[in-house]
Design a protein around this nucleic acid. Structure first.
Lengths: 139, 139, 139, 139
DNA sequence: GTGGTCTAGACCACA
DNA sequence: GTGGTCTAGACCACC
Protein backbone atom coordinates (compact mmCIF):
# COMPACT_ATOMS: atom_id res chain seq x y z
CA UNK A 1 0.00 0.00 0.00
CA UNK A 2 1.22 3.44 -0.93
CA UNK A 3 0.54 6.56 1.10
CA UNK A 4 -0.03 9.68 -0.99
CA UNK A 5 0.34 13.15 0.48
CA UNK A 6 -1.62 16.10 -0.89
CA UNK A 7 0.57 19.01 0.11
CA UNK A 8 -2.08 21.41 -1.17
CA UNK A 9 -4.70 20.03 1.22
CA UNK A 10 -5.31 21.84 4.49
CA UNK A 11 -5.58 18.45 6.19
CA UNK A 12 -2.40 18.02 8.25
CA UNK A 13 0.14 15.69 6.69
CA UNK A 14 0.23 13.43 9.73
CA UNK A 15 -3.57 13.14 9.55
CA UNK A 16 -3.47 12.14 5.91
CA UNK A 17 -1.06 9.37 6.81
CA UNK A 18 -3.24 8.23 9.71
CA UNK A 19 -6.35 8.17 7.53
CA UNK A 20 -4.76 6.24 4.71
CA UNK A 21 -3.22 3.61 6.94
CA UNK A 22 -6.49 3.19 8.85
CA UNK A 23 -8.28 2.67 5.57
CA UNK A 24 -5.57 0.33 4.26
CA UNK A 25 -6.04 -1.88 7.29
CA UNK A 26 -9.84 -1.71 7.12
CA UNK A 27 -9.61 -2.86 3.51
CA UNK A 28 -7.23 -5.67 4.32
CA UNK A 29 -4.48 -4.15 2.18
CA UNK A 30 -2.34 -4.27 5.29
CA UNK A 31 -2.52 -7.57 7.13
CA UNK A 32 -2.39 -7.99 10.89
CA UNK A 33 1.21 -8.44 12.01
CA UNK A 34 2.56 -6.93 8.81
CA UNK A 35 5.48 -4.56 9.19
CA UNK A 36 5.03 -1.02 7.93
CA UNK A 37 7.79 1.19 6.54
CA UNK A 38 10.11 2.51 9.23
CA UNK A 39 9.85 6.14 10.23
CA UNK A 40 12.99 6.97 8.30
CA UNK A 41 11.93 5.01 5.23
CA UNK A 42 8.56 6.66 4.97
CA UNK A 43 10.18 9.99 5.75
CA UNK A 44 12.43 9.57 2.72
CA UNK A 45 9.65 8.21 0.49
CA UNK A 46 7.16 10.96 1.22
CA UNK A 47 9.77 13.69 1.63
CA UNK A 48 8.30 14.54 5.00
CA UNK A 49 10.08 15.21 8.28
CA UNK A 50 10.61 12.04 10.38
CA UNK A 51 8.89 13.71 13.32
CA UNK A 52 5.72 14.03 11.27
CA UNK A 53 5.75 10.33 10.40
CA UNK A 54 6.44 9.49 14.03
CA UNK A 55 3.45 11.59 15.05
CA UNK A 56 1.21 9.68 12.68
CA UNK A 57 2.48 6.34 13.98
CA UNK A 58 2.06 7.47 17.57
CA UNK A 59 -1.53 8.43 16.89
CA UNK A 60 -2.25 5.08 15.22
CA UNK A 61 -0.67 3.24 18.12
CA UNK A 62 -2.86 5.13 20.55
CA UNK A 63 -5.87 4.06 18.50
CA UNK A 64 -4.71 0.48 18.95
CA UNK A 65 -4.16 0.02 15.25
CA UNK A 66 -0.38 -0.26 15.27
CA UNK A 67 2.25 -1.65 17.61
CA UNK A 68 5.56 0.09 17.54
CA UNK A 69 8.63 -1.64 18.91
CA UNK A 70 11.85 0.36 19.15
CA UNK A 71 14.61 -1.47 17.40
CA UNK A 72 12.24 -3.56 15.33
CA UNK A 73 9.77 -1.31 13.58
CA UNK A 74 6.06 -0.68 13.36
CA UNK A 75 3.47 -3.43 12.92
CA UNK A 76 -0.26 -3.74 12.25
CA UNK A 77 -1.89 -4.72 15.55
CA UNK A 78 -4.43 -7.37 16.38
CA UNK A 79 -7.72 -5.47 16.35
CA UNK A 80 -9.55 -5.38 19.68
CA UNK A 81 -12.08 -2.76 20.57
CA UNK A 82 -11.83 -1.68 24.16
CA UNK A 83 -14.73 0.71 23.97
CA UNK A 84 -18.12 0.31 25.56
CA UNK A 85 -20.87 -0.74 23.19
CA UNK A 86 -22.78 2.48 23.72
CA UNK A 87 -19.78 4.58 22.80
CA UNK A 88 -19.10 2.56 19.67
CA UNK A 89 -22.71 2.78 18.62
CA UNK A 90 -22.74 6.50 19.22
CA UNK A 91 -19.66 7.04 17.10
CA UNK A 92 -21.04 5.00 14.25
CA UNK A 93 -24.32 6.91 14.30
CA UNK A 94 -22.50 10.22 14.24
CA UNK A 95 -20.50 9.06 11.23
CA UNK A 96 -23.63 7.88 9.46
CA UNK A 97 -25.48 11.15 10.03
CA UNK A 98 -22.50 13.11 8.79
CA UNK A 99 -22.43 11.02 5.63
CA UNK A 100 -26.16 11.28 5.04
CA UNK A 101 -26.08 15.04 5.53
CA UNK A 102 -23.35 15.28 2.93
CA UNK A 103 -25.26 12.99 0.56
CA UNK A 104 -28.44 15.06 0.78
CA UNK A 105 -26.56 18.27 0.09
CA UNK A 106 -24.85 16.67 -2.87
CA UNK A 107 -28.32 15.95 -4.25
CA UNK A 108 -28.29 12.16 -4.15
CA UNK A 109 -31.38 10.21 -3.31
CA UNK A 110 -31.75 7.55 -0.67
CA UNK A 111 -31.72 4.46 -2.85
CA UNK A 112 -28.69 5.66 -4.75
CA UNK A 113 -26.75 6.23 -1.53
CA UNK A 114 -27.63 2.89 -0.02
CA UNK A 115 -26.83 1.09 -3.26
CA UNK A 116 -23.43 2.77 -3.39
CA UNK A 117 -22.69 1.92 0.24
CA UNK A 118 -23.59 -1.72 -0.34
CA UNK A 119 -21.36 -1.69 -3.35
CA UNK A 120 -18.32 -0.11 -1.76
CA UNK A 121 -18.65 -2.04 1.48
CA UNK A 122 -17.72 -5.21 -0.39
CA UNK A 123 -14.11 -4.01 -0.59
CA UNK A 124 -13.75 -3.86 3.18
CA UNK A 125 -12.56 -6.47 5.61
CA UNK A 126 -15.48 -7.07 7.97
CA UNK A 127 -15.49 -8.80 11.28
CA UNK A 128 -17.47 -11.99 10.70
CA UNK A 129 -17.63 -13.16 14.31
CA UNK A 130 -20.88 -11.52 15.38
CA UNK A 131 -22.55 -8.20 15.98
CA UNK A 132 -20.89 -5.98 18.59
CA UNK A 133 -24.19 -5.80 20.41
CA UNK A 134 -24.09 -9.50 21.14
CA UNK A 135 -20.34 -9.81 21.36
CA UNK A 136 -20.10 -7.48 24.32
CA UNK A 137 -23.39 -7.98 26.03
CA UNK A 138 -21.58 -9.64 28.93
CA UNK A 139 -19.80 -6.41 29.79
CA UNK B 1 -34.17 24.05 15.19
CA UNK B 2 -31.82 24.73 18.04
CA UNK B 3 -28.06 24.83 17.64
CA UNK B 4 -26.21 23.34 20.59
CA UNK B 5 -22.60 24.25 21.27
CA UNK B 6 -20.41 21.67 22.94
CA UNK B 7 -17.82 23.93 24.53
CA UNK B 8 -15.81 20.93 25.70
CA UNK B 9 -15.47 19.64 22.15
CA UNK B 10 -12.27 20.02 20.22
CA UNK B 11 -14.30 20.97 17.12
CA UNK B 12 -14.19 24.75 16.53
CA UNK B 13 -17.38 26.51 17.56
CA UNK B 14 -17.98 27.93 14.08
CA UNK B 15 -17.67 24.42 12.64
CA UNK B 16 -20.22 23.06 15.09
CA UNK B 17 -22.66 25.70 13.91
CA UNK B 18 -21.96 24.95 10.25
CA UNK B 19 -22.43 21.23 10.80
CA UNK B 20 -25.67 21.56 12.69
CA UNK B 21 -27.26 23.94 10.24
CA UNK B 22 -26.21 21.75 7.33
CA UNK B 23 -27.71 18.74 9.09
CA UNK B 24 -30.84 20.68 10.03
CA UNK B 25 -31.45 21.48 6.41
CA UNK B 26 -30.65 17.94 5.26
CA UNK B 27 -33.20 16.66 7.75
CA UNK B 28 -35.82 19.16 6.67
CA UNK B 29 -35.91 20.86 10.07
CA UNK B 30 -35.06 24.05 8.26
CA UNK B 31 -37.09 24.65 5.10
CA UNK B 32 -35.81 26.27 1.93
CA UNK B 33 -36.44 30.02 2.06
CA UNK B 34 -36.76 29.98 5.83
CA UNK B 35 -35.11 32.83 7.66
CA UNK B 36 -32.38 31.99 10.14
CA UNK B 37 -31.55 34.02 13.26
CA UNK B 38 -29.42 37.07 12.59
CA UNK B 39 -25.78 37.08 13.59
CA UNK B 40 -26.46 39.10 16.71
CA UNK B 41 -29.56 37.08 17.64
CA UNK B 42 -27.68 33.81 17.46
CA UNK B 43 -24.71 35.41 19.19
CA UNK B 44 -26.95 36.22 22.15
CA UNK B 45 -28.70 32.84 22.14
CA UNK B 46 -25.57 30.74 22.06
CA UNK B 47 -23.45 33.13 24.12
CA UNK B 48 -20.86 33.10 21.39
CA UNK B 49 -18.80 35.90 19.88
CA UNK B 50 -20.63 37.51 16.89
CA UNK B 51 -17.49 37.08 14.81
CA UNK B 52 -17.78 33.34 15.30
CA UNK B 53 -21.40 33.29 14.09
CA UNK B 54 -20.46 35.47 11.14
CA UNK B 55 -17.70 33.08 10.22
CA UNK B 56 -20.11 30.15 10.29
CA UNK B 57 -22.61 31.98 8.10
CA UNK B 58 -19.89 33.01 5.66
CA UNK B 59 -18.80 29.41 5.37
CA UNK B 60 -22.38 28.22 4.78
CA UNK B 61 -22.89 30.88 2.16
CA UNK B 62 -19.69 29.78 0.45
CA UNK B 63 -21.12 26.27 0.41
CA UNK B 64 -24.25 27.62 -1.25
CA UNK B 65 -26.44 26.57 1.64
CA UNK B 66 -27.40 30.03 2.86
CA UNK B 67 -28.15 33.35 1.18
CA UNK B 68 -27.47 36.58 2.92
CA UNK B 69 -29.79 39.36 1.80
CA UNK B 70 -28.34 42.53 3.32
CA UNK B 71 -30.89 44.32 5.44
CA UNK B 72 -33.28 41.38 5.39
CA UNK B 73 -31.42 38.54 7.01
CA UNK B 74 -30.04 35.11 6.30
CA UNK B 75 -32.09 32.47 4.47
CA UNK B 76 -31.81 28.80 3.59
CA UNK B 77 -30.90 28.73 -0.09
CA UNK B 78 -32.57 26.92 -2.96
CA UNK B 79 -30.41 23.84 -3.31
CA UNK B 80 -28.59 23.76 -6.60
CA UNK B 81 -25.50 21.72 -6.82
CA UNK B 82 -23.20 23.32 -9.31
CA UNK B 83 -20.72 20.53 -9.02
CA UNK B 84 -20.07 18.17 -11.88
CA UNK B 85 -21.52 14.73 -11.51
CA UNK B 86 -18.08 13.17 -11.27
CA UNK B 87 -17.01 15.49 -8.49
CA UNK B 88 -20.17 14.87 -6.50
CA UNK B 89 -19.84 11.17 -6.97
CA UNK B 90 -16.23 11.30 -5.89
CA UNK B 91 -17.09 13.23 -2.73
CA UNK B 92 -19.82 10.83 -1.79
CA UNK B 93 -17.52 7.86 -2.28
CA UNK B 94 -14.87 9.46 -0.09
CA UNK B 95 -17.46 10.02 2.62
CA UNK B 96 -18.68 6.44 2.33
CA UNK B 97 -15.18 5.00 2.54
CA UNK B 98 -14.40 7.13 5.55
CA UNK B 99 -17.53 5.86 7.26
CA UNK B 100 -16.88 2.23 6.38
CA UNK B 101 -13.30 2.48 7.61
CA UNK B 102 -14.56 3.78 10.92
CA UNK B 103 -17.20 1.06 11.11
CA UNK B 104 -14.68 -1.72 10.51
CA UNK B 105 -12.36 -0.37 13.19
CA UNK B 106 -15.25 -0.10 15.63
CA UNK B 107 -15.84 -3.81 15.10
CA UNK B 108 -19.24 -3.68 13.41
CA UNK B 109 -20.13 -6.08 10.63
CA UNK B 110 -21.44 -5.22 7.21
CA UNK B 111 -25.09 -6.12 7.71
CA UNK B 112 -25.28 -4.23 10.97
CA UNK B 113 -23.89 -1.09 9.36
CA UNK B 114 -26.16 -1.20 6.35
CA UNK B 115 -29.19 -1.86 8.52
CA UNK B 116 -28.34 1.16 10.66
CA UNK B 117 -27.82 3.38 7.64
CA UNK B 118 -31.17 2.37 6.18
CA UNK B 119 -32.72 3.10 9.52
CA UNK B 120 -31.23 6.53 10.05
CA UNK B 121 -31.63 7.61 6.44
CA UNK B 122 -35.41 7.67 6.97
CA UNK B 123 -35.05 10.85 9.01
CA UNK B 124 -33.49 12.78 6.14
CA UNK B 125 -35.11 14.87 3.46
CA UNK B 126 -34.16 13.26 0.17
CA UNK B 127 -34.40 14.72 -3.29
CA UNK B 128 -37.18 12.80 -5.05
CA UNK B 129 -36.74 14.33 -8.47
CA UNK B 130 -34.36 11.86 -10.02
CA UNK B 131 -30.99 10.26 -9.60
CA UNK B 132 -28.02 12.60 -9.83
CA UNK B 133 -26.61 10.33 -12.49
CA UNK B 134 -29.47 11.21 -14.82
CA UNK B 135 -30.00 14.76 -13.64
CA UNK B 136 -26.52 15.83 -14.53
CA UNK B 137 -25.69 13.49 -17.32
CA UNK B 138 -24.91 16.54 -19.41
CA UNK B 139 -21.95 17.36 -17.18
CA UNK C 1 -1.07 22.83 41.78
CA UNK C 2 2.56 23.10 40.86
CA UNK C 3 4.30 20.76 38.43
CA UNK C 4 7.88 19.93 39.36
CA UNK C 5 10.33 18.59 36.78
CA UNK C 6 13.21 16.35 37.81
CA UNK C 7 15.67 16.97 35.02
CA UNK C 8 17.93 14.29 36.44
CA UNK C 9 15.22 11.64 36.09
CA UNK C 10 15.25 9.37 33.06
CA UNK C 11 11.46 9.70 32.91
CA UNK C 12 10.66 11.95 29.92
CA UNK C 13 9.74 15.48 30.88
CA UNK C 14 6.40 15.30 29.10
CA UNK C 15 5.59 12.10 31.02
CA UNK C 16 6.39 13.76 34.34
CA UNK C 17 3.93 16.49 33.46
CA UNK C 18 1.28 13.97 32.43
CA UNK C 19 1.71 11.99 35.64
CA UNK C 20 1.53 14.99 37.91
CA UNK C 21 -1.53 16.47 36.27
CA UNK C 22 -3.28 13.10 36.31
CA UNK C 23 -2.55 12.81 40.01
CA UNK C 24 -3.59 16.39 40.64
CA UNK C 25 -6.97 15.69 39.12
CA UNK C 26 -7.36 12.35 40.90
CA UNK C 27 -6.71 14.15 44.17
CA UNK C 28 -9.15 16.91 43.39
CA UNK C 29 -6.42 19.58 43.42
CA UNK C 30 -7.57 20.45 39.94
CA UNK C 31 -11.33 20.76 39.61
CA UNK C 32 -13.38 19.74 36.58
CA UNK C 33 -13.68 22.68 34.20
CA UNK C 34 -10.71 24.46 35.74
CA UNK C 35 -8.32 26.10 33.33
CA UNK C 36 -4.72 24.93 33.34
CA UNK C 37 -1.71 27.10 32.53
CA UNK C 38 -1.39 27.79 28.81
CA UNK C 39 1.31 26.01 26.87
CA UNK C 40 3.41 29.15 26.77
CA UNK C 41 2.90 29.93 30.45
CA UNK C 42 3.94 26.48 31.60
CA UNK C 43 6.77 26.52 29.10
CA UNK C 44 8.12 29.67 30.73
CA UNK C 45 7.48 28.45 34.28
CA UNK C 46 9.17 25.08 33.87
CA UNK C 47 11.82 26.34 31.43
CA UNK C 48 10.81 23.63 28.99
CA UNK C 49 10.20 23.87 25.26
CA UNK C 50 6.55 24.66 24.37
CA UNK C 51 6.43 21.58 22.15
CA UNK C 52 7.13 19.40 25.16
CA UNK C 53 4.28 20.96 27.12
CA UNK C 54 2.02 20.60 24.11
CA UNK C 55 2.93 16.92 23.88
CA UNK C 56 1.95 16.40 27.50
CA UNK C 57 -1.36 18.20 27.00
CA UNK C 58 -2.06 16.25 23.81
CA UNK C 59 -1.48 13.00 25.65
CA UNK C 60 -3.79 14.04 28.48
CA UNK C 61 -6.44 15.04 26.00
CA UNK C 62 -6.17 11.64 24.33
CA UNK C 63 -6.71 10.08 27.73
CA UNK C 64 -9.88 12.12 28.03
CA UNK C 65 -8.57 14.02 31.03
CA UNK C 66 -8.22 17.43 29.43
CA UNK C 67 -10.09 19.41 26.81
CA UNK C 68 -8.00 21.77 24.79
CA UNK C 69 -9.65 24.57 22.88
CA UNK C 70 -7.49 26.66 20.56
CA UNK C 71 -7.88 30.30 21.38
CA UNK C 72 -9.16 29.62 24.88
CA UNK C 73 -6.80 27.32 26.67
CA UNK C 74 -6.70 23.91 28.29
CA UNK C 75 -9.32 22.68 30.76
CA UNK C 76 -9.89 19.72 33.07
CA UNK C 77 -12.49 17.50 31.40
CA UNK C 78 -15.63 15.89 32.74
CA UNK C 79 -14.48 12.36 33.58
CA UNK C 80 -16.22 9.59 31.64
CA UNK C 81 -14.71 6.20 31.12
CA UNK C 82 -15.35 4.84 27.66
CA UNK C 83 -13.64 1.55 28.32
CA UNK C 84 -15.27 -1.83 28.68
CA UNK C 85 -15.58 -3.06 32.22
CA UNK C 86 -13.33 -6.05 31.56
CA UNK C 87 -10.56 -3.82 30.24
CA UNK C 88 -10.80 -1.45 33.19
CA UNK C 89 -10.73 -4.33 35.61
CA UNK C 90 -7.73 -5.84 33.86
CA UNK C 91 -5.80 -2.58 34.04
CA UNK C 92 -6.53 -2.14 37.71
CA UNK C 93 -5.42 -5.70 38.49
CA UNK C 94 -2.18 -5.20 36.61
CA UNK C 95 -1.52 -2.04 38.59
CA UNK C 96 -2.28 -3.79 41.84
CA UNK C 97 0.02 -6.70 41.10
CA UNK C 98 2.81 -4.33 40.12
CA UNK C 99 2.41 -2.51 43.42
CA UNK C 100 2.28 -5.67 45.50
CA UNK C 101 5.38 -7.06 43.78
CA UNK C 102 7.21 -3.86 44.63
CA UNK C 103 5.95 -3.97 48.20
CA UNK C 104 7.14 -7.53 48.74
CA UNK C 105 10.58 -6.73 47.39
CA UNK C 106 10.78 -3.70 49.62
CA UNK C 107 10.20 -6.03 52.56
CA UNK C 108 6.84 -4.77 53.73
CA UNK C 109 4.23 -7.12 55.08
CA UNK C 110 0.66 -7.42 53.94
CA UNK C 111 -1.06 -5.60 56.79
CA UNK C 112 1.37 -2.71 56.63
CA UNK C 113 0.72 -2.28 52.90
CA UNK C 114 -3.04 -2.41 53.18
CA UNK C 115 -3.01 -0.03 56.12
CA UNK C 116 -0.92 2.44 54.14
CA UNK C 117 -3.19 2.15 51.10
CA UNK C 118 -6.28 2.81 53.21
CA UNK C 119 -4.51 5.76 54.70
CA UNK C 120 -3.36 7.37 51.50
CA UNK C 121 -6.58 6.66 49.61
CA UNK C 122 -8.33 9.19 51.82
CA UNK C 123 -6.58 12.00 49.96
CA UNK C 124 -8.12 11.00 46.63
CA UNK C 125 -11.30 12.12 44.98
CA UNK C 126 -13.38 8.95 44.54
CA UNK C 127 -16.39 8.44 42.40
CA UNK C 128 -19.25 7.95 44.86
CA UNK C 129 -21.95 7.06 42.35
CA UNK C 130 -21.54 3.28 42.33
CA UNK C 131 -19.19 0.49 41.43
CA UNK C 132 -18.15 0.32 37.77
CA UNK C 133 -19.42 -3.24 37.63
CA UNK C 134 -22.96 -2.07 38.28
CA UNK C 135 -22.66 1.28 36.57
CA UNK C 136 -22.01 -0.22 33.17
CA UNK C 137 -23.86 -3.51 33.36
CA UNK C 138 -26.28 -2.22 30.74
CA UNK C 139 -23.56 -2.09 28.11
CA UNK D 1 7.67 -20.38 36.30
CA UNK D 2 7.38 -19.50 32.66
CA UNK D 3 8.27 -16.10 31.32
CA UNK D 4 5.93 -14.98 28.55
CA UNK D 5 7.02 -12.33 26.08
CA UNK D 6 4.37 -10.09 24.60
CA UNK D 7 6.05 -9.10 21.37
CA UNK D 8 3.20 -6.74 20.56
CA UNK D 9 3.73 -4.80 23.76
CA UNK D 10 5.46 -1.46 23.81
CA UNK D 11 7.33 -2.51 26.95
CA UNK D 12 10.94 -3.47 26.11
CA UNK D 13 11.51 -7.22 26.06
CA UNK D 14 14.21 -7.05 28.71
CA UNK D 15 11.82 -5.13 30.96
CA UNK D 16 9.12 -7.74 30.55
CA UNK D 17 11.58 -10.39 31.71
CA UNK D 18 12.67 -8.30 34.69
CA UNK D 19 9.07 -7.64 35.70
CA UNK D 20 7.97 -11.24 35.47
CA UNK D 21 10.92 -12.62 37.39
CA UNK D 22 10.45 -10.00 40.08
CA UNK D 23 6.78 -10.89 40.31
CA UNK D 24 7.54 -14.62 40.26
CA UNK D 25 9.79 -14.21 43.26
CA UNK D 26 7.32 -11.95 45.05
CA UNK D 27 4.64 -14.61 44.57
CA UNK D 28 6.92 -17.40 45.79
CA UNK D 29 6.85 -19.12 42.40
CA UNK D 30 10.63 -18.85 42.45
CA UNK D 31 12.25 -19.78 45.77
CA UNK D 32 15.29 -18.14 47.28
CA UNK D 33 18.42 -20.00 46.17
CA UNK D 34 16.66 -21.55 43.21
CA UNK D 35 18.65 -21.64 39.97
CA UNK D 36 17.22 -19.79 37.00
CA UNK D 37 17.73 -20.76 33.35
CA UNK D 38 21.08 -19.68 31.94
CA UNK D 39 21.22 -16.82 29.49
CA UNK D 40 21.49 -19.13 26.51
CA UNK D 41 18.79 -21.49 27.80
CA UNK D 42 16.31 -18.70 28.23
CA UNK D 43 17.43 -17.18 24.95
CA UNK D 44 16.45 -20.42 23.19
CA UNK D 45 13.20 -20.83 25.14
CA UNK D 46 11.89 -17.34 24.54
CA UNK D 47 13.43 -16.97 21.07
CA UNK D 48 15.02 -13.74 22.19
CA UNK D 49 18.49 -12.38 21.57
CA UNK D 50 20.94 -13.51 24.33
CA UNK D 51 22.02 -9.91 24.79
CA UNK D 52 18.47 -9.07 25.79
CA UNK D 53 18.37 -11.85 28.41
CA UNK D 54 21.76 -10.77 29.69
CA UNK D 55 20.51 -7.23 30.04
CA UNK D 56 17.52 -8.40 32.05
CA UNK D 57 19.71 -10.49 34.37
CA UNK D 58 22.15 -7.63 34.83
CA UNK D 59 19.30 -5.37 35.82
CA UNK D 60 17.91 -7.92 38.29
CA UNK D 61 21.36 -8.40 39.80
CA UNK D 62 21.68 -4.66 40.16
CA UNK D 63 18.36 -4.71 42.03
CA UNK D 64 19.78 -7.38 44.36
CA UNK D 65 17.20 -9.92 43.26
CA UNK D 66 19.56 -12.31 41.51
CA UNK D 67 23.12 -13.51 42.11
CA UNK D 68 25.27 -14.59 39.22
CA UNK D 69 27.87 -17.14 40.26
CA UNK D 70 30.23 -17.47 37.28
CA UNK D 71 30.43 -21.02 36.04
CA UNK D 72 27.46 -22.10 38.14
CA UNK D 73 24.52 -20.07 36.92
CA UNK D 74 22.04 -17.48 38.10
CA UNK D 75 20.24 -17.80 41.42
CA UNK D 76 17.44 -16.04 43.26
CA UNK D 77 19.17 -13.97 45.93
CA UNK D 78 18.59 -13.87 49.65
CA UNK D 79 16.35 -10.83 50.03
CA UNK D 80 18.03 -8.10 52.00
CA UNK D 81 16.87 -4.63 51.52
CA UNK D 82 19.81 -2.32 52.00
CA UNK D 83 17.63 0.70 51.62
CA UNK D 84 16.94 2.99 54.50
CA UNK D 85 13.50 2.76 55.99
CA UNK D 86 12.60 6.23 54.80
CA UNK D 87 13.59 5.47 51.23
CA UNK D 88 11.60 2.23 51.18
CA UNK D 89 8.61 3.93 52.66
CA UNK D 90 8.87 6.70 50.13
CA UNK D 91 8.99 4.24 47.23
CA UNK D 92 5.99 2.34 48.47
CA UNK D 93 4.01 5.52 48.88
CA UNK D 94 4.87 6.59 45.36
CA UNK D 95 3.70 3.21 44.07
CA UNK D 96 0.49 3.45 46.04
CA UNK D 97 -0.27 6.95 44.82
CA UNK D 98 0.37 5.88 41.23
CA UNK D 99 -2.05 3.00 41.64
CA UNK D 100 -4.74 5.11 43.31
CA UNK D 101 -4.47 7.76 40.61
CA UNK D 102 -5.03 5.10 38.00
CA UNK D 103 -7.94 3.62 39.93
CA UNK D 104 -9.69 6.98 40.26
CA UNK D 105 -9.33 7.66 36.54
CA UNK D 106 -10.68 4.21 35.73
CA UNK D 107 -13.77 5.13 37.69
CA UNK D 108 -13.47 2.67 40.57
CA UNK D 109 -14.45 3.64 44.05
CA UNK D 110 -12.39 3.33 47.19
CA UNK D 111 -14.00 0.28 48.71
CA UNK D 112 -13.83 -1.62 45.47
CA UNK D 113 -10.12 -0.93 45.11
CA UNK D 114 -9.24 -1.87 48.66
CA UNK D 115 -11.29 -5.03 48.43
CA UNK D 116 -9.47 -6.05 45.24
CA UNK D 117 -6.08 -5.32 46.76
CA UNK D 118 -6.88 -7.43 49.80
CA UNK D 119 -8.00 -10.17 47.50
CA UNK D 120 -4.99 -10.21 45.20
CA UNK D 121 -2.47 -9.71 48.01
CA UNK D 122 -3.29 -13.22 49.24
CA UNK D 123 -1.35 -14.68 46.29
CA UNK D 124 1.88 -12.98 47.32
CA UNK D 125 4.66 -14.24 49.54
CA UNK D 126 4.86 -11.76 52.39
CA UNK D 127 7.67 -11.33 54.86
CA UNK D 128 6.29 -12.58 58.16
CA UNK D 129 9.26 -11.62 60.33
CA UNK D 130 8.12 -8.20 61.39
CA UNK D 131 7.17 -4.81 60.08
CA UNK D 132 9.86 -2.92 58.19
CA UNK D 133 9.36 -0.07 60.55
CA UNK D 134 10.69 -2.13 63.41
CA UNK D 135 13.18 -4.17 61.45
CA UNK D 136 15.10 -1.16 60.27
CA UNK D 137 14.48 1.25 63.04
CA UNK D 138 18.24 1.54 63.44
CA UNK D 139 18.50 3.10 59.95
C1' DG E 1 -3.80 35.87 23.03
C1' DT E 2 -4.70 30.59 22.42
C1' DG E 3 -3.27 25.65 20.62
C1' DG E 4 -1.66 22.88 16.32
C1' DT E 5 1.53 21.69 12.61
C1' DC E 6 5.87 21.16 10.53
C1' DT E 7 10.85 21.38 9.93
C1' DA E 8 15.75 20.67 11.19
C1' DG E 9 18.86 18.71 13.89
C1' DA E 10 20.60 16.69 18.28
C1' DC E 11 20.86 12.81 21.55
C1' DC E 12 19.30 8.49 23.79
C1' DA E 13 17.49 3.63 24.42
C1' DC E 14 16.20 -0.89 22.33
C1' DA E 15 17.39 -5.11 19.65
C1' DG F 1 19.39 -0.28 12.33
C1' DT F 2 14.92 0.89 14.98
C1' DG F 3 11.64 4.41 17.55
C1' DG F 4 11.46 8.24 21.30
C1' DT F 5 12.59 12.70 23.31
C1' DC F 6 13.73 17.43 23.23
C1' DT F 7 14.94 21.96 21.37
C1' DA F 8 14.45 26.05 18.37
C1' DG F 9 12.02 28.47 15.43
C1' DA F 10 8.50 29.12 11.70
C1' DC F 11 3.68 29.55 10.25
C1' DC F 12 -1.36 28.82 10.64
C1' DA F 13 -6.22 28.66 12.57
C1' DC F 14 -9.28 29.84 16.39
C1' DC F 15 -11.50 33.20 19.46
Amino acid sequence: MKVIIETSSRVPVYQQIVTQIREGIARGLIQVGERLPSVREMSRDLVVNPNTIAKAYTELERQGILNTRPGLGVFAAQPRSELLHDIRSERLKEGIDRLLTEAVHLGFNREEVIRLIEDRSRAFQWDHSSTPAKKNRRD
